[in-house]
């Protein structure tokens, strides 16, 4: 397998793993959301990269062009981006509310406060 020709997949996998790592390793709620965002971005790449053919054009049917890039992934990912933005926005809104309720956005501090509240 030619590593160079698959480099977009390598980038994708790097982003997937990097994003997940941030989600797991960071206790700060905003940083976690950033990790999720990076993780979601990797998917955009996974979809879009294979749609591009070198030398291909937009799919406009004329006699001049024979090779077209696939437009469908772009459309799909447009939707996915919207979903991703919505998730991020909602997540951040939740973090704001959490900060109002707990006075902190560090996961361990919040959990401690909940535990103290139980007592």
């Amino acid at each position: 397998m030619n590593i160079a020709s698959h480099y977009s997949y390598w980038v994708t996998m790097f982003l997937v793993i990097g994003g997940l790592y941030i989600v797991i390793a960071r206790g700060n709620l905003v940083k976690k959301l950033i990790g999720v965002a990076i993780f979601q971005t990797s998917v955009y790449l996974l979809y879009i990269a294979p749609g591009k053919l070198i030398g291909g054009t937009a799919p406009i049917i004329t006699e001049q062009f024979q090779v077209y890039s696939n437009p469908l992934p772009h459309v799909l990912i447009l939707t996915a981006i919207v979903v991703g933005i919505a998730t991020l926005a909602l997540g951040l809104a939740l973090v704001v509310r959490i900060r109002e309720a707990y006075g902190s956005i560090e996961e361990d501090e919040i959990l401690t406060r909940d535990r103290d509240g139980e007592r």
Binding site: V23, L29, K32, L33, V36, T87, L90, G91, L94, V95, R97, I98, A101, I110, D114
Partner: peptide, 11 residues
């Protein structure tokens, strides 16, 4: 705690 629960579910 509903907020944290929602956040965790979101992630």
């Amino acid at each position: 705690r509903a907020l944290m629960a929602a956040y965790q579910y979101l992630i």
